[in-house]
Structure formats: C-alpha cells, structure tokens
C-alpha cells in the first residue's frame, strides 16, 4: 500500500492537555506529524488543529479512528481528496546585498509577498500561499542566501458547496 500525505482538520475541546493527548497519540503509535497548527475557533471552547500527516490507507484510517476515540476530540475531517482551500504563511530572512535588492523585491512582488523587515544587508519577507507556492519562492530566493525561515504549517477549510 502506498503512502500519501493527508491534511486533517480536527476540532477539539479548548482545554489544557488536549494537544498533548493528540501529540502523544502520534508519538506513542509511531505516526508521523509533518506540520501542525492550532488555534481557537469562533467558539472559544473549541480549537481547530490542522495537521498534515503521512501513511498508507490502513494507517490513515487508524489515525482518524484513534483521534475520534479521544474524549476531547469533537470531529475529524480528512480534507485530502475533497474541495478545500489551504494556506500557509512563511517568513523568510534573505541576504539582500545592494546588487540583488531590486531582483529580490521583484520576486517578492510576483509572489504577492511583503517585506516586513529591512536592514543594511537583509530583507524579511512574508509570503502566504499553498505548499507549491512557498516551495517555489524558496527555491528562487535560495541563490541569494536564505538565513532563516519560519513556517506556520498549513491551515485549511472546506469550500462551500456551490
């Protein structure tokens, strides 16, 4: 059975220890977390966890069942194969010496990014998009010297039915 990346959206009680139950479930059972993003929803009693994980169909089925079994988990959605919108934000600190500054700004513009911090020899650029877009800009900026990046991990919602 082939492994595939899945994007899960999990609604949980907004209580201390809940994230630990979920992370503990993954480490205890040897499942993989590729990215994880947690924050409150409109209802402050509920948090949404957006997670990317990887596994064959039998493992993914177990992951969803095991998550559902946790008393603090309200709902598990598997977005993979569904219609959804997904975004991730990345902050990129890139070396920007005089002769490269214009080129870096052009690239940032093409990707609809923003320079959020600027120094004598660097820019910090904010980009939002899906995984492909972020990978693309990272590979374009790499030749200039990327010093650090910080990524949020994916967040996603189902598209409304038309």
């Amino acid at each position: 059975m082939t492994e595939k990346r899945h994007l899960l959206s999990i609604l949980v009680d907004n209580e201390p220890g809940v994230l630990s139950r979920i992370v503990g479930l993954f480490s205890g059972r040897g499942y993989n977390i590729e990215s994880l993003c947690v924050a409150e929803t409109m209802d402050p009693a509920i948090s949404r966890i957006t997670m990317t994980t990887r596994g064959n169909p039998m493992i993914i089925e177990q992951i969803k069942k095991q998550l559902n079994k946790l008393v603090n988990v309200l709902k598990v959605f598997d977005l993979t194969g569904q219609e959804y919108v997904q975004r991730e934000m990345v902050l990129i600190k890139v070396t920007a010496v005089q002769q490269h500054r214009a080129e870096i700004l052009r690239i940032t513009d093409i990707f609809r990014g923003q320079v959020v911090d600027v120094g004598q020899d660097h820019f910090t650029i904010k980009i939002t998009g899906d995984n492909e877009k972020i990978s693309a800009i990272l590979s374009l900026l790499r030749p200039f010297g990327i010093r650090e990046i910080a990524r949020t991990g994916s967040i996603a919602l189902f598209r409304e039915k038309k």
Binding site: G17, S20, R21
Partner: peptide
Amino acid sequence: IVGITRPCTKHNYL
C-alpha cells in the same frame, strides 16, 4: 500523574 497516565487511561482529569 495525569501526564504519565495519558497514554494508558481511557481518559483522565486534573
């Protein structure tokens, strides 16, 4: 003990 027993209880409370 809540942390210790999280993976071996059905549920636990502090």
